[in-house]
């Protein structure tokens, strides 16, 4: 019998998230971000959060909404430039920022979920990212030791999910979501379409439900586009 991970709504899904916790939030830019849960975190007013997310949203969307309310104490990201409020808080010292090479960020989340405490990577060797980190040579090339990341709650967004928590992502909205789902002590998945078990083809599932503790169907996805680039129709 498949386990049932369904919670009624975003309030139930985010219950237990407290000030001072470490959260992982999926998405790349505004693509594949858990919109409903972010709105709920704003409503809950939790603060002093450490947020692990590739980006920090824009001023009025994504994690920018949490920055506006000064709910974030520290960001762990690879690229954060799209946000005036972020810049202001960073320069004034209100916000701590840890910048990590994107591949190392992805792998540190994956490692966190996979029971691997640390790994060696060539990325960042010889740069300030490598400062103070253990260096070892493999195959004649220097590598630095990077440690795994985990979170109290990981919050991910998928396209389709079933009641057992199995997830399928759409196109490039997958990005960091699968690794973060693995690395959360509690993982919350919000999905555009929640279906009964058996409706998703087991061959096509990207994230097995074992990594997901709570799943709910999100509402009113805005899916804002950050850089709308098009070719004119002839």
């Amino acid at each position: 019998m498949a386990l049932n991970k369904v919670v009624a709504n975003v309030e139930e899904a985010c219950a237990g998230i407290q000030s001072g916790m470490t959260l992982m939030l999926g998405g790349f830019g505004l693509c594949g971000i858990p919109e409903n849960s972010i709105a709920q975190l704003v409503k809950m007013g939790v603060n002093n959060l450490t947020c692990i997310s590739n980006n920090a949203g824009v001023d009025d969307f994504g994690l920018g909404l949490l920055l506006q309310g000064r709910q974030i104490k520290k960001m762990i990201s690879s690229y954060v430039g799209e946000n005036d409020e972020f810049e202001r808080q960073m320069l004034s010292g209100e916000l701590e920022v840890d910048l990590i090479p994107q591949g190392s960020l992805a792998e540190r989340c994956r490692a966190g979920g996979a029971g691997i405490p640390a790994f060696f990577t060539p990325a960042g060797y010889g740069t300030e990212v490598g400062e103070g980190k253990e260096v070892r040579e493999f195959n004649g090339k220097p590598h630095i030791l990077e440690t795994a990341l985990t979170a109290d709650y990981a919050i991910v967004k998928a396209w389709k999910g079933d009641t057992a928590g199995n997830l399928i992502f759409k196109a490039t909205a997958r990005n960091f979501n699968p690794m973060m789902a693995m690395a959360g002590k509690i993982t919350i998945a919000e999905v555009e379409e929640l279906v009964p078990v058996g409706e998703l083809d087991p061959n096509q599932i990207h994230t097995p439900g074992i990594f997901v503790q709570r799943i709910f169907q999100g509402e009113r996805y805005e899916k804002r586009i950050e850089q709308r680039t098009v070719r004119p129709r002839a």
């Binding site: 690879s78 430039g81 810049e87 960073m90 910048l99 591949g103 190392s104 990325a123 990212v129």
Partner: peptide, 10 residues
Amino acid sequence: MVKGMGGAMD
């Protein structure tokens, strides 16, 4: 302003 390295270092 430091925006970050994104994937460039990897």
